[in-house]
Simulated assay, not measured.
Amino acid sequence: MSSLLAVLDAIESAPAAVALRARSYELLGDLTDRTVVDVGCGSGRAVAELAERGAHAVGVDLDSEMIAVARERWPAGEFQVGDATELPLETGWATYYRADKVLHVLDDPARAVAEARRVLAPGGRAVLLGQDWDLIAVDSDQPETTRRLVHAKADSLPSPRVARRFRNLLLDAGFTDPTVEVHTAVFTDHTALGLLKRITDEETWLAEQTERAQANRILVAVPMFLVAAQA
């Protein structure tokens, strides 16, 4: 858990990640005194940031260890253990719904989006944010191996390509007026190497990337889909 948290903290602290989260909050709308559910909240950073912007934010995550970390880090926040496909919230409870880097780990992301529609009040908004695992770009002298490893990682996940489906999932669930943005997260420091170690443990390939990192020549680019729609 500690090693995963270290990688996640490094990624979430990067300026581009901070800016992307801020953009997701903008797409929700006016946060003052609004209720927001942040699904797949992890260690709770977004819940704290939403609260700082005046929202009543509730973080939900299936991982009880992550919820424990969130409660320790943000004692003023509200966090619950819960399933994205069966949220522990009343129908029409929330003004806004946000899910960040979570739908790719679900076997049935469409059910989670339908659940988002259920918990939102009429006129509410949903924002989905996530990476397409099959589109990760890595600068490497071994392009064929790189393609194989990226595809293998994608295929190991329940829904690795769901981000490109966000718009249609929202429409299928009854949302309207979806907007789509694609932002590319670029990593050129030690964070890139930590990300690649989550993709593979193939030593020869990682050795090249480690040399690149030491020589300031590493580059990983991850397309992030950001989609908002009206309930």
Rank of each mutant, 00 (worst) to 15 (best):
D155A: 07
Q131P: 12
G54W: 00
F166K: 01
V186A: 03
L196T: 02
S3P: 00
V7W: 12
E26T: 12
E90F: 10
A46V: 11
L195V: 08
R147F: 11
E78F: 13
L169T: 09
S156C: 03
G44S: 07
A17C: 14
A22Y: 05
M224L: 06
A221G: 10
H151Y: 11
V182F: 01
L103I: 09
L157Y: 09
V227S: 00
A110R: 13
T191G: 04
D201N: 13
R34D: 10
D83K: 05
R161Q: 05
V222Y: 02
D132A: 01
L206C: 04
A114P: 13
E181K: 00
L8K: 13
Y96E: 12
A94S: 15
M224K: 05
G42E: 10
G92E: 01
A17K: 08
D100N: 14
R23H: 07
T146M: 11
D155W: 01
G92T: 02
V227G: 03
V220S: 10
E115K: 03
V47F: 04
A163C: 04
P143W: 12
A207D: 10
V127G: 01
D38E: 01
Q80A: 14
G54K: 03
S140Y: 01
V105W: 14
A70D: 13
A163N: 00
I11C: 15
S3T: 10
V138W: 06
P143G: 12
M224P: 01
